[in-house]
Structures are given as structure tokens and as C-alpha cells.
Write a protein that binds this DNA or RNA. Sequence first.
DNA 1: CAATAATTTAAGTTATTACTATAATACAAT
DNA 2: ATTGTATTATAGTAATAACTTAAATTATTG
Lengths: 119, 119
Amino acid sequence: MSDALATIASPRRREILRLLWAGERSAGEIRAAMPDVTFGAVSQQLRTLERAGLVRVRAQGARRIYRAERAALGPLGAVLERMWADSLWRLKLAAELEASRRGPRPRRRARTARRSHRP
Amino acid sequence: MSDALATIASPRRREILRLLWAGERSAGEIRAAMPDVTFGAVSQQLRTLERAGLVRVRAQGARRIYRAERAALGPLGAVLERMWADSLWRLKLAAELEASRRGPRPRRRARTARRSHRP
DNA sequence: CAATAATTTAAGTTATTACTATAATACAAT
DNA sequence: ATTGTATTATAGTAATAACTTAAATTATTG
């Protein structure tokens, strides 16, 4: 899915993009802004955004700094900005993030150590 | 998914919307323009578009006439129009429609009559 | 080099999507 | 009423998306 429209259709990716709109952030900072998901989840969405050309990464020590590639969005950039300015949209986003959790719900902690399935 | 962004992220729905942009069409006419899928598939996407408020239906005899609800798209309408005007985008659409066939591939015809699984 | 920190990668799970085929419905025409 | 036409509805299926946990990678630091 390297298409910009499909990429920004995801509320989670929009959330990330919104953060980066304000300025570059390390992966960790981005993750910190979304405590409801794991680092892995955020990292994956970052890669999706990258593949779509909507963000760029740069390594800085052990950190990876992401920034939004505004130009790549073209007229969609303005659409996003309008969404973000609109407080009604903001409420909708919160609702969507809650509703669109479709991966496995957080599992209860594993009770016993399990050995890895591949040696 | 009653959100406009997510709704127009689908190339198939965009194709339908594009048709309706030119003027209202019956479900049958829409279906005729997309011979690669069944009537059922088109009907479903029409319902999705309807739930998102992007199209409106009106019954005319046994026919259902659909029309695009341009206003509901807001600034996204202009984005779509730009896409459609751009010939490069047109090529991409064709590619996407081919690529994004993810339901079951057309099965070979049933060889023997099967009775229905529920009486 | 070992330990820690930051992040990515991999594999597994579940819900959703975009289809299919077929049955059901609504209206029209004979 | 029966038959035909237009369309929707339902149930089933394969692929995908968004997450999870856990392991692997890469750089920093003691």
C-alpha cells in the first residue's frame, strides 16, 4: 500500500503524522505519545509511512529521527491540516482509535515461561 | 468505516465515485462499467459509500439510481478530481484494481449441482 | 567485551475487507 | 398468478491490517 490516500486513511498513522507535522521526533518520542500500543506497533506504522514516502528517517546515534515529508502529501496535506484544526474531527479521531483496535486485544500476561518455537 | 477518507481509500469505491461524478447512474449501469466483479460486489461497495454519506439512492421502478453527494467530500472532492485529471494516476488505478483483488479468486465453475447447505 | 538502551524484525492472533455464489426481495410485464 | 428483470441480502472464503510478544540488531557506555 504505497498510496498516500490509503496510508493516511489509518487514524493511527494520521496520529503519527500529526506529531511529526510539528517537527521531527525520534521513534521513542513518537511511541511515548501513544502509550496504548507497543513500540513494535508504532515501528511498523512508521515503516508503512516511510514506504509511502510520507516520512523520512535519519539515524542519530542509536536513535532514529523521523520527519514528515510534507511535499509528498500534496493537496492532502491541506486536508489533514484542516482536519487537525477542526475540534470535531479531533473527537472523531479519539473514537476511531478506540474502535479500530483490531489486532489481538492485550493478552493477560503469560503465566509460565515458554521456550521459543525455533531453537 | 463511515469516514470519508477511509471510504475513498479503496480504488474500487473511487472508481464508482468517479462514474457518479459525471452524473447519476443505476446500479446496473455502474455494474456494467466494472465487468471484472459481480453485481453483488458492486452493490456492497455502493452500500459502503452510502453509509459514508458519499452517495444517495433513489428508487425508480425496479431500478435504484445512485448519485454522488459531492458536498459530503468537502475538500477531498477536489483531491479526487485532481487525481482523475492526472493520467498517471489513471494508470495507477488500473494497477491497483488488478493488485487489490483480495477476495477469493474466481473459482472454477461448480461441476455438480450442490444442494444448499441450509434447507 | 559485557550490559544497557533504542529500535527493528519476526511470528502469531484476530477482526475486517473484498470478493464469491446463491437465495431472497421488489417491481414489471405477460 | 407466473415469469422475468433489477437489485439487495446472506453466508462463506482468502488476503490483509493492526496489533501482540519475543527475539534480533545496532549503537552507547562502563
